[in-house]
Design a protein around this nucleic acid. Structure first.
Lengths: 229, 229
DNA sequence: GAATTGTAGATTGTCGACAATCTACAATTT
DNA sequence: AAATTGTAGATTGTCGACAATCTACAATTC
């Protein structure tokens, strides 16, 4: 017997909308109208409004008073902001990982990394990113800073969305990132903080480049200015 | 004529509750019951539920499904988690401040710092912390990373709450922090990132110590004060 | 024809009521 | 008396309806 942690209406609606947004079924800028959705899902607007607040926290939608909810746009600027912050926060995770990971945790990370190696040889980008998320979350488990964990977890749906967009466009970066992932994994074993943080930065920089391609804004050479949609 | 940015019912209720929690009028662990509050304020429960979501985001309340809202407790552990994260995030701010502050911004920061110096000579702890917040927010203004700004702003009410608790107990740390604030201000002028970040760390470590006293959990004896940059 | 104004319909904000279920306490058992 | 069970009242979750106001388009003006 397995027990559901929670399956409230708002939770279900949140999952439903999250999936729609990540998959691109709901597109950036698209309005989400409470009454329509309520009728479609056979619920009232109250749980939908609550779900929209959660999606706001995950930055999948934007809420404007008296104008309702729309799917958050994915600009290159936003992606850059996001990765800057992720780097700072994950630096804390890597430090704690290196300071505190026990043999069991290291074994688990090794196992995931090995699977990632297999997947990368097969060239399955989709599986590669799923496994990398798994690695990242397994690493996150060591931190005793629950506030940090929560903040990072809030970003996960948004990151999955970015990766989904990238994969749809056949944009991949296995080569550049796998090397850095190996280095991070080694740095945990040798307790080498500097190496770990450096590899993390390179890893995230590759991801950022990858993400910028995905949102149609390759890394700047000359300064191209933003324009109004 | 001045225009109100927003004065929706949820906003007003959020401000009302935020003030009550910061001032300690609502105490840690105390339940906030929707119907009672609704009657007291003469509104229905809908805007109150929305306000509670905002307070949740600011970490002033905890929401448990089917059990409602209670004022978030203030543990030493939580405060440590918080300052760890604030340091990482504000490091980004300091870096951008040093990289991008123009003469005008530097002048503004100088002016605030000068006021802080005056206040510290007068020994007014309350005014000292208010002015320090002002300095921190003026520094935050230079960042073009709106995501970062938003995340930091979410912490502000919680930090004000901690400071309020400390001041009620006559716990102060003007001496230790003013030195570091001066160093940060200098580092902006000399564009010295390392100096700025180092001073920021010391500043926040003093604040952390101060906060731990306030929540009745003085720093552990063996605790190291700084970690690797 | 372009810009402005007015209007109908659509959409969000708020409300009060009811359903689901949680909490505190009383009644019962050991 | 301590622990367990049962129950009444209190509290949160959800709903449908109405009020406020926003949006898109038609009518009007220049």
């Amino acid at each position: 017997m397995t027990f559901l942690v929670s399956d409230s209406l708002p939770d279900q609606i949140t999952r439903y909308l999250t999936e729609k947004i990540i998959s691109g079924d709901l597109r950036p800028g698209e309005r989400i109208m409470e009454a329509h959705l309520a009728e479609k899902l056979g619920v009232s607007r109250a749980p939908i409004r609550e779900a929209l607040q959660v999606l706001r926290k995950n930055r999948l939608v934007e809420l404007v008073p008296r104008q309702g909810a729309k799917v958050a746009p994915l600009s290159g600027q936003y992606v850059r902001w996001l990765y800057d912050i992720i780097f700072e926060l994950y630096t804390l995770v890597v430090r704690q990982l290196i300071a505190q990971a026990d043999r069991e945790r290291i074994g688990l990370l090794d196992a995931i990394l090995e699977r990632i190696e297999d997947i990368s040889r097969a060239g399955d980008e989709q599986a590669y990113y799923n496994a990398r998320f798994e690695y990242a979350l397994a690493a996150l488990e060591v931190t005793d800073n629950l506030l940090l964990k929560e903040m990072i977890m809030d970003f996960v749906p948004g990151l999955m969305r970015i990766h989904h967009v990238a994969l749809k466009q056949r944009v991949g970066n296995i080569g550049k990132t796998l090397v850095q992932l190996r280095k991070i994994n080694e740095s945990v074993k040798t307790r080498d903080v500097e190496k770990g943080v450096k590899a993390l930065r390179k890893l995230l920089n590759s991801d950022l480049e990858f993400a910028l391609h995905a949102v149609g804004e390759p890394p700047r050479r000359g300064a191209k200015k933003a324009r109004q949609p």
